[in-house]
C-alpha cells in the first residue's frame, strides 16, 4: 500500500480531521484577533502628557505591559500551556482553543499597535485640522490605514496556529495532531508512517486554504487607494 492508497482508503477520517483542524484554527484566530484588535484600538489613543495625569497613562501602560506579557506567552512551549490549562478546562476542544487564542494575541496586538501608531502624522494632523474628533479619526482614518498591517498580523498568526494546533492532540483537541499521535504510538505497524506524513503535510494544505482565504479578504477589505 502506498501513500496515495492510504489517503484514499482513509479519506473520510482524513478529511474530517483536516476540517476540524481548519475550524479550530479559524475559531481561535477569530476570537484572538477580535480581542487583540479591540485592545489595540482601545490603547492606541496617543502619547500621554508627561506633566498631566490622564487616561492615556493607563492606555500606554496597558499597551506596553500587554505587549511584553503576550510576547512572553508566545515563548512558552505549547506543551506547557496545554499541560497548565488541562486541569482547569479539561480534555478536549476548549483547552485547545484557549491555548491557541493565547498564542494569537501578541502578533495581532503588536501589528495593530504598530499599524495604528505609524499612520502618517501629516494625515492625522490634517484630519484634526479638518475637524475630525478622536473616535472618528481612529475609526475612519487610522483603522483603515492600519488594516493591511493588522491583516498581515492575523495571517502570520494563523500560520503559526496551524502548527501549534497539532500539539493540541495531546489534550485530545481535534485536528490533524490525532494522526500524528496515533502514528507514533503504532510505530512499526502498517501505515503508521503514512499517518504521520499525512498529518504533517495536510497542515500545509490547511495553510494553503488559509492563504487563499486571506488573499480574498485582502482584496475585499483593503481600501483601493492604499492597495499595493
Amino acid at each position: 500500500m502506498n501513500f496515495l492508497d492510504y489517503l484514499a482508503t482513509n479519506s473520510q477520517q482524513i478529511v474530517f480531521l483536516t476540517q476540524a483542524h481548519f475550524l479550530v484554527v479559524l475559531i481561535a484566530v477569530g476570537i484572538g484577533s477580535a480581542i487583540s484588535v479591540a485592545l489595540g484600538l482601545a490603547v492606541s489613543t496617543g502619547e500621554p502628557d508627561p506633566r498631566r495625569f490622564s487616561l492615556d497613562w493607563f492606555a500606554t501602560g496597558i499597551r506596553e505591559g500587554g505587549l511584553v506579557f503576550t510576547a512572553a506567552l508566545l515563548t512558552v512551549p505549547s506543551l506547557a500551556l496545554f499541560a497548565l490549562f488541562l486541569p482547569i478546562t479539561g480534555l478536549g476542544i476548549t483547552t485547545a482553543i484557549i491555548v491557541l487564542i493565547i498564542y494569537t494575541l501578541y502578533t495581532v496586538l503588536r501589528n495593530t499597535v504598530a499599524g495604528l501608531t505609524t499612520v502618517d502624522r501629516a494625515v492625522l494632523e490634517s484630519a484634526r485640522g479638518l475637524g475630525y474628533g478622536r473616535v472618528r479619526r481612529l475609526l475612519t482614518i487610522q483603522l483603515p490605514l492600519a488594516w493591511p498591517v493588522i491583516l498581515n498580523g492575523i495571517r502570520v498568526t494563523t500560520l503559526i496556529s496551524i502548527s501549534i494546533a497539532v500539539v493540541g492532540a495531546v489534550v485530545q483537541g481535534p485536528g490533524l495532531g490525532i494522526l500524528l499521535l496515533n502514528g507514533i504510538s503504532r510505530i512499526g505497524a502498517a501505515n503508521s508512517f503514512y499517518q504521520v506524513l499525512a498529518g504533517t503535510l495536510l497542515c500545509l494544505v490547511v495553510a494553503a486554504v488559509f492563504e487563499i482565504f486571506f488573499a480574498i479578504v485582502q482584496r475585499l477589505t483593503i481600501p483601493r487607494g492604499i492597495r499595493v
Binding site: 503559526i160 502548527s163 495532531g177 498529518g199 497542515c203 500545509l204
Partner: peptide
C-alpha cells in the same frame, strides 16, 4: 511556519 515541528 505552518509546517508543524512536531510532525517533522
Amino acid at each position: 511556519q505552518a509546517l508543524p515541528p512536531f510532525g517533522v
